[in-house]
């Protein structure tokens, strides 16, 4: 179980380790803005939206990148201003622990049920 957890964590980490060396700054903006909700739109990301809000947001992200901020810092910065609602990728905290863990618990529970049903011989 512990192994699986570690493995999972590693996978999640590697999901994010895209090759930064090749990335241009504008692609960096795309990447970040895809994870941000356009707050004045209905269910659109900042990346997809052409609204005033989204356009300004993209400029702001570019500026922050130029200032040398990394993704995490930019997300944190925006969360401080607009709350968790703005990011599509909820981080693990006391509010979202069930969100992340519940499906995994169900999976383990299901596996146990199957193992009980199936006779190993």
């Amino acid at each position: 179980m512990k192994m699986i957890k570690i493995l999972l964590k590693l996978m999640i980490i590697f999901l994010f380790l895209q090759n930064n060396s090749l990335a241009e700054t504008s692609e960096e903006v795309d990447k970040i803005s895809k994870n941000l909700r356009c707050l004045i739109c209905q269910g659109q990301s900042v990346y997809d939206s052409q609204s005033d809000f989204a356009l300004s947001m993209k400029i702001l992200i570019q500026n922050k990148i130029d200032e040398g901020k990394n993704d995490e810092q930019i997300y944190e910065y925006l969360k401080a201003k607009y709350g968790e609602w703005i990011v599509y990728d909820p981080e693990m905290n006391k509010n979202t622990v069930l969100l992340w863990v519940l499906p995994l618990i169900l999976f383990v529970f299901g596996s146990l049920l199957i193992l009980r049903k199936v006779s190993i011989r």
Binding site: K34, N35, R37, S45, G83, E84, W85, I86, V87, Y88, D89, P90, N95, T96, L99
Partner: peptide
């Protein structure tokens, strides 16, 4: 309020 999007 939280948003749950593709990354999740």
């Amino acid at each position: 309020k939280i948003s749950i999007g593709p990354p999740f």
